[in-house]
């Protein structure tokens, strides 16, 4: 069981490392300037242009690296927004009793019933398309899921005798949260956040594909897919490259999340 898990973790980390490595590389070196169209339109892969050029003559590999920045940025941004809001709200709901708790549970169920993409589209429609709006929208949708999970976990932990023991030992509620509740919900919540990060990357790509995410000229992978659509038969690499990058990152994040489960427990060394 844990051998399978550690294989998952290794494969996942490798995939994530390739994408993150590419993003870090992009800050130090790019094969071409992002707006350099000197290579001519729809150049085939090989030669100066590793993956060829797009229909405006921009280098595809350069675009792909820059798209990676957006993907990773979205994942980190959305997880931060969703994690902070979700855990805070879930903690409050976990401690709440009776009607307040019921109200919180119903509110979260309604929010979760909204598809992430629909919620994000509504927010983008109101606030205008930009990377920041997309990240906040995705983060808000994520917060509802994280809050619901946190609420259930908090209730489970609060029922444990070590919480009662801490109260009898004179530990205040805020310190019980910091020293007992958060450390015990952290493994499950962080695995869930990692899974959500994968979904966030997909959601941003979908929004960009629909023209609701990162506005041009920034090359989000979703936007690259959209732009490659018209020329997919003449230049399949322009569609394949962002598609493969997207799938690799999402699978990598998911495998990492799955593999992490085993490595967040003091009992693992058994």
């Amino acid at each position: 069981m844990s051998r399978r898990r550690s294989l998952h973790l290794a494969a996942g980390l490798l995939l994530v490392a390739v994408v993150v490595g590419g993003v870090l590389l992009s800050y130090l070196w790019l094969p071409f300037a992002p707006d350099d169209t000197s290579g001519g339109r729809l150049a085939p892969p090989g030669g100066d242009h590793l993956l060829g050029t797009d229909k405006l003559g921009r280098d595809l590999f350069t675009q792909l690296l820059i798209g990676g920045r957006i993907a990773i940025g979205t994942a980190l941004g959305a997880v931060t927004v969703g994690g902070v809001l979700g855990v805070s709200f879930g903690l409050v709901a976990g401690f709440a009793t009776r009607w307040l708790d019921d109200a919180a549970a119903v509110l979260l169920d309604i929010l979760i019933a909204f598809p992430t993409l629909l919620l994000a589209m509504l927010i983008v429609a109101g606030a205008g398309a930009s990377l920041a709006t997309a990240v906040i929208a995705i983060g808000l949708a994520m917060a509802a899921v994280v809050a619901r999970l946190t609420r259930v976990l908090v209730k489970q932990i609060l029922a444990r005798d070590y919480i009662t023991a801490a109260r009898v030992a004179g530990i205040s509620w805020p310190r019980i949260v910091v020293s007992h509740v958060l450390p015990n919900i952290a493994p499950t919540v962080s695995v869930n956040l990692a899974l959500q990060a994968g979904l966030a990357v997909l959601a941003e790509a979908s929004l960009s594909y629909l023209g609701l995410g990162t506005p041009p000229p920034n090359a989000s992978w979703g936007r690259m897919l959209y732009e490659a659509q018209a020329t997919v038969l003449v230049a399949p690499v322009a569609a394949l490259a962002p598609g493969i990058a997207l799938v690799a990152l999402v699978i990598g994040v998911n495998l990492t999340a799955d593999g992490l489960r085993d490595f967040t427990d003091p009992r693992r060394s058994r």
Binding site: R160, D161, Y162, T164, V168, A169, S179, H180, P183, N184
Partner: peptide
């Protein structure tokens, strides 16, 4: 002070 029934539930597994 107090001692509880279930020694598996009364000690925080992460401490």
């Amino acid at each position: 002070q107090a001692v509880f029934q279930d020694p598996y539930s009364s000690l925080d597994p992460r401490h």
